[in-house]
Design a protein around this nucleic acid. Structure first.
Lengths: 334, 334
DNA sequence: CTGAAAGCGCTTACAG
DNA sequence: CTGAAAGCGCTTACAG
């Protein structure tokens, strides 16, 4: 049996409430009383029972993080940073992997997972805004990423269009004219791929280069997706002098496939990505990409969520935070 | 206010205990009673309060996972698999990052983190066996990795020595004679680096190749560590025709640095790693490495922990599980 | 500034 | 097979 507040109260010769007051930093306690209680806590090695505290207070001091798959480097790096920031604020992060499945996303939105957390950082990939709004529950919910862009929600996003436009402009400035885009459907939508494609087209237009739908190849946002997309371009005999992978994994997979096929990077084909995961600095050649400001995203999304939890942010509509980006020019597209 | 068991009991016209029996799949309930209760649960949308259940039962159905840094690909991939396996067993995984610091490891071993979990998967890097044993607490604890090899603990390890020996033998069979080892001190100890170094030396000996301490370069097990180690070898003008990075990150960082310096891989220098992270298949050239059986490690370590929690594994001494390895021969060292 | 009491929502002996 | 009661260890009004 663990030591309880009762034991501490008895040892210190005070009531339960007084122990509670000391534990919760209540202001008006006589110094002598506080000292007695703290001495008893030390001597008995008392540790507050978090479960009991949660049951009574209704707060768990855990935050939920829903993402598709923790083994995806971008998510792993984001989760790691979020945990660090959360821990400084006295919170833990409980991760739930959705595998981008609607059923899993729905399950994370209420049910046990939600119950265990005081607020949710949610990267939706399958559900739409109305579905989420209908089941959002009463606890704070902050959306990460671009799948949902709806003023009803708190959103933390990156400047997808502007960043994609900037990196495409960089490729164009390097003399590239046939820039393949890997990871988007030719259909424009408001999702991350769609927004990045819009940026790509805007850059082409500014440079007076015609858009060729044959250069747009849909694929999974993974290394093998990028590799398969390059293979598809080759088998269709589409010519290109640059590749813009809509995330780093796609770009790195594409680069691998190009090099395997004897294509020189960047001499024959320049390669650019998006995310600036750690690996991008250490690939060979190192990968030109966009840094979407992951530190800023981690810090500000967590702060927003905590402000909602503590009632410090009271805007009735959603707050929209957009992180800044920077171009990382490396060897794959100098 | 959420719906409680009281509400369900009232709606179904039964007692609290009966509702509890239905929820906990107690055998001897009349079908008609069970049906009544289930109907009430459905209609009211009742969900059990996990915090209350935990307080009463002393079980949280959460498992702790302590590792140095979730943004390290090997740990991210392991955590992802563990979460998937745990979730199938009805458990969640709470991750704690230690940054390989003794204070953090100690804090994870008891205190709030331990309280929140029914058992711990622990990757110690800083603490020694005696310190851990003194504070291990009463809840199940399974050690991952080789830092602690002590029969007092349940251990899940990989065949470090044998695997390192096998991959070194592969490099030797390819005609390499000056194989640099990155990521070990020249001192043999029983830790992962030490064991892998022992395997390396055993392979040299079998092949009748003399061991040269100048080829052993200590470094952090990260991409930048591998890169720095290659730079150090070059500045010391040590000649070598192969690199064995003691994990994939080191090998990939080393390969990057070699290519940047105009060294051809594998023509001039062959490169091999250890771990078989996803990235190893997609680097350029793709990385020859050892797959330590991460799926097996995830499954068996979790099973062992659950068996301890449920009292199914009662061996008084620690159980030692060793996963099998396979060589992955790729382009960096064919 | 401190105390006595109630109650968060469950599970678990104990009866019957 | 089911019920009434106690209690897990806290926090929170309510008094004083």
């Amino acid at each position: 049996m663990a030591v309880t507040m009762h034991d501490v109260a008895r040892a210190a010769g005070v009531s339960l409430k007084t122990v509670s007051n000391v534990l919760n930093d209540y202001e008006f306690i006589r110094d002598s009383t506080r000292a007695k209680v703290q001495k008893a806590i030390e001597e008995l090695g008392y540790e507050a029972n978090l479960t009991a505290r949660s049951l009574r207070s209704g707060k768990t001091r855990m935050l939920g993080l829903v993402l598709s798959d923790l083994s995806v480097p971008y998510y792993a790096e984001l989760a790691s940073r979020l945990m660090t920031v959360a821990s400084e604020a006295g919170y833990r992060v409980l991760v739930e992997q959705s595998n981008a499945g609607a059923a899993n996303e729905l399950a994370a939105l209420h049910g046990p997972f939600r119950q265990l957390t005081d607020g949710l950082l949610f990267t939706p990939l399958a559900l739409d805004a109305d579905t989420i709004d209908a089941r959002r529950g009463s606890k704070p919910l902050v959306m990460l990423g671009e799948h949902i862009l709806d003023p009803r929600f708190d959103l933390v996003t990156m400047k997808n269009k502007e960043a994609a436009q900037a990196i495409t402009a960089h490729l164009l400035a390097g003399g590239r004219r046939r820039i393949a885009v890997l990871g988007a459907d030719a259909v424009d939508d408001a999702d991350s791929p769609g927004l990045r494609l819009v940026g790509y087209r805007a850059a082409l237009e500014s440079a007076g280069v015609a858009f060729d739908p044959a250069l747009v190849v849909p694929c999974e946002w993974r290394r093998d997706g990028g590799a398969a997309a390059v293979a598809a371009l080759h088998s269709r005999e589409v010519e290109f002098d640059a590749v813009f992978g809509l995330n780093d994994a796609v770009a790195l997979g594409a680069m691998h496939e190009l090099l395997v096929r004897g294509v020189k990077v960047p001499e024959d084909v320049a390669v650019a990505g998006f995310d600036d995961i750690d690996e991008a600095s250490y690939s060979s050649p190192s990968l030109t990409t966009v840094s979407p400001g992951m530190d800023e995203i981690a810090k500000r999304s967590l702060q927003l969520l905590l402000d909602r939890i503590n009632g410090k942010e009271a805007a009735p509509d959603g707050v929209h935070i957009e992180s800044d980006f920077t171009l990382k020019i490396r060897s794959s597209a100098p």
